[in-house]
Amino acid sequence: MQAHDAYKDDLALLTEAALAAGKIAERYYRNDARVWDKGDGQGPVTEADLAVNAQLHSVLTAARPGYGWLSEESNPLGDLSRLGHETCFVIDPIDGTRAFIDGQPGFAHALAVIHKGQPVAAVVYLPMLALTYAARRGGGATLNGVPISASARADVDGAHVLITRPAMDPVHWPGGVPAIKREFRPSPAWRLALVGEGRFDALVTIRDSWDWDIAGAALIATEAGAVITDRHGQPLRFNRAEARNPGVVAAGPAVHAGLMAGLTAPQGAA
């Protein structure tokens, strides 16, 4: 009961922080925010990312000084002090920065609390679309306060799957590319949350996935009834030194099984 109450309190804290972050992002949205390239193939960052990150760090660490901190915009692979904490914030100040730069509304603030490698409270907030996805361990998942549930589709063929075009290359599917309908959205966290909402049947990411992109939304999808693993079918783990997992597969049980059959070599194959 004590842990359950703690997760509830952490979820309330994340929700309040995410809504405040949205107000900051709105000030910069379509307002010529300065943009830099982070180099080394890391992509762009804007002054809005940095302003949101600073605000979230200030508010969240003041409220929970005993928690570690992992954020895309806070030297995530250089500062490993977070590994000394059983509980850690995992934050993407603006998930979908390219969409933000392009003036598209499909960017999100992705916030999570991780305890012993697993998410226990999470919020994915899209301020320009007025969408607040939230979950806590054992408490279910909601969208704008209304419970959500993942798709119960029984057959992978014909499933609507959030996946990039390159990920459909047969080289990634030794068991055969399933006959799915491909869709895409700009924010990784939003894509996972949409699976939890049941708007799409599944998500597949072949490339390694950073913790800040998926940690919170992974809890939302799981609490909504989806099965979520890495691309090899193994459980996801968060707040490790490398801060990433080898891809993501999220779907209802039957569709997840069908996708994994395609992603893994048939039994007995060389």
Rank of each mutant, 00 (worst) to 15 (best):
S187K: 08
V177D: 04
Y29L: 08
G139S: 10
L70T: 13
F184K: 07
L192S: 09
A51N: 06
N31G: 09
R237D: 06
L129W: 09
N245W: 07
G117I: 08
Y29I: 02
F89C: 04
A21E: 02
V204C: 01
G106V: 01
A152Y: 01
W212L: 01
L80S: 06
L194K: 10
D208Y: 14
D79P: 03
R153N: 14
A135Y: 04
M168W: 02
L143R: 13
A154D: 13
D213H: 15
D213L: 09
Q104M: 11
Y7G: 00
S58M: 08
A251Y: 00
K8L: 12
R185N: 07
I114H: 04
I163A: 06
T15R: 12
T142G: 02
H4T: 14
A150R: 12
P246G: 14
P188I: 09
D208V: 02
G117P: 08
V123D: 06
R64E: 08
H115C: 13
G103T: 11
V35W: 05
E16P: 00
I228L: 15
Q234Y: 10
P105Y: 02
G175E: 01
T87D: 10
A141M: 10
R98D: 07
D32L: 11
G252C: 05
I101N: 08
A215V: 08
P178C: 00
S187G: 09
L83G: 12
G96N: 02
M1R: 12
A108N: 04
S74A: 15
N53M: 06
E183F: 15
G233Q: 03
T97F: 06
V195K: 07
E242A: 13
L131I: 01
A3G: 03
A12I: 04
P174I: 09
P166L: 09
E223F: 03
A226D: 03
L203A: 13
E223R: 05
Q42W: 10
R34F: 12
V120S: 01
A17H: 00
G268P: 09
E86G: 13
P253R: 00
A17F: 00
D169N: 15
I180S: 02
A257W: 00
A179I: 00
A130T: 13
K116N: 13
L14A: 11
I220A: 02
I228Y: 06
D102I: 01
A226L: 01
A189F: 04
W212C: 07
D102C: 04
V177C: 05
G175A: 03
K181D: 11
V204D: 00
V124P: 05
D157Q: 13
Q234R: 14
A51R: 01
G43Y: 05
D49T: 07
H109G: 02
A54V: 03
L83M: 11
D169Q: 09
H115K: 11
H85E: 08
I148L: 12
K23I: 05
L60Q: 06
I206F: 11
H4K: 11
T15Y: 02
A152M: 07
V123E: 05
D32R: 14
K116A: 15
V255T: 00
T142Y: 10
G139E: 08
P188N: 13
L19D: 05
V52S: 09
Q55M: 14
N75E: 15
M168G: 12
L70Q: 10
A110D: 10
A251L: 02
G233M: 02
H115M: 03
P170R: 12
A108Q: 05
L60C: 10
A63S: 13
V255N: 00
E197A: 15
S74L: 00
E47A: 10
